[in-house]
Design a protein around this nucleic acid. Structure first.
Lengths: 118, 118
DNA sequence: GAAATTGTTCGAAAATAATCGAACAATAAA
DNA sequence: TTTATTGTTCGATTATTTTCGAACAATTTC
């Protein structure tokens, strides 16, 4: 029997621009940890390994889950890169579907501090 | 024993403008039913009894809870009015704390249809 | 005052979401 | 090709949220 074929884990599914749903985007951004991740991605794509969470004691499976929620809402992309992954903000898609939303959120988001990569 | 004194149920607590938290506001708006309520309030204050939900089969206690989430996030006010209540959008406070956010959300929110009060 | 109206609170049940560790997959490095 | 690195998925557990009905409170109407 063709067994399920979950996904080759490599290319993960991303919703098309047209399928983004406002409420889902708002939900994805309604968590401080996820909001902070998005704030980090504003400057440009970031390797998952480099993407820090405020709470370093968080399990990697949980971190992966946070990224999944953002990805499934269409907020970020998560692409294979070497043996790791690259995360990037879907700014164009978000701006196109929800003009001004991301800017408004980011500009009133608590300063992400650790934006200084000493 | 002075018993708890929950609240005289009349004047409900509202967070001060300065205490509004972005993530909480986003969460409050991340539910379609709550988003639709907010869309109704854009035109001005509405009596609770007049404020319809898409799903009319919803219990009144649930409706009250939806309002509570919006109120506690600082999105709406809920004031006594006669024997009922008046709901209103805290537009000034929201615009002040999160400039552009409400506009962005409302302008990309699904058309509220039932805005026609035949 | 008694009855009707409106809406909140409480407590319990059901549905969602967050979190973790273990197992697995994919690539890179040795 | 073996080992190390990185990150996803699975299954279970816990925490949070939603939903409901019943009880209560406030106000108006009779």
């Amino acid at each position: 029997m063709s067994e399920d074929i979950p996904f080759p884990v490599g290319e993960l599914p991303h919703p098309a621009r047209a399928d983004l749903v406002l409420a889902q985007v708002l939900f994805a951004l309604s968590d401080p940890a996820r909001l902070a991740i998005v704030a980090q991605l504003v400057a440009g794509p970031v390797d998952m390994a480099r993407c820090q969470l405020q709470d370093p004691s968080i399990a990697k499976s949980t971190k992966s889950h946070l990224m999944r929620v953002l990805r499934e809402a269409g907020v970020i992309r998560n692409d294979p890169k070497g043996r790791g992954r690259t995360l990037s903000l879907r700014r164009d898609d978000l701006d196109s579907r929800f003009p001004g939303l991301l800017d408004a959120i980011l500009s009133s988001a608590p300063p992400n501090d650790s934006t200084d990569l000493t």
